[in-house]
Amino acid sequence: MLLAKIYVTFKEGVPDPQGETMGQSLLAMGYQGVLSVRTGKYLEIKLATADKDAASREVEEMCRRLLANSVIEQYRYTLEECC
């Protein structure tokens, strides 16, 4: 079995009101070093296959078709062995 760990984040330039609000709060809390906050989604998908190439192709397609919206989002992922 393989575990895909997928990160979906906003593309550069796309407004992220949640991230901006968190950034402002962190500054207000005194974390003066905060330059920016960008939010995103983290997903874990367990896959039956042990074939990393096949899994990679499949995850790529899942991201493209459903998990990320290419108008506003980008994605990256890792694949690791799991039990």
């Binding site: 796309v14 407004p15 992220d16 009101p17 949640q18 609000t21 919206n69 108008v71 506003i72």
Partner: peptide, 17 residues
């Protein structure tokens, strides 16, 4: 319709959150 690609663009959360 946006997600289906029948219209251009995408929706974000309201800026007031």
């Amino acid at each position: 319709l946006l997600e289906a690609g029948l219209l251009p663009g995408a929706m974000l959360r309201n800026d007031c959150l």
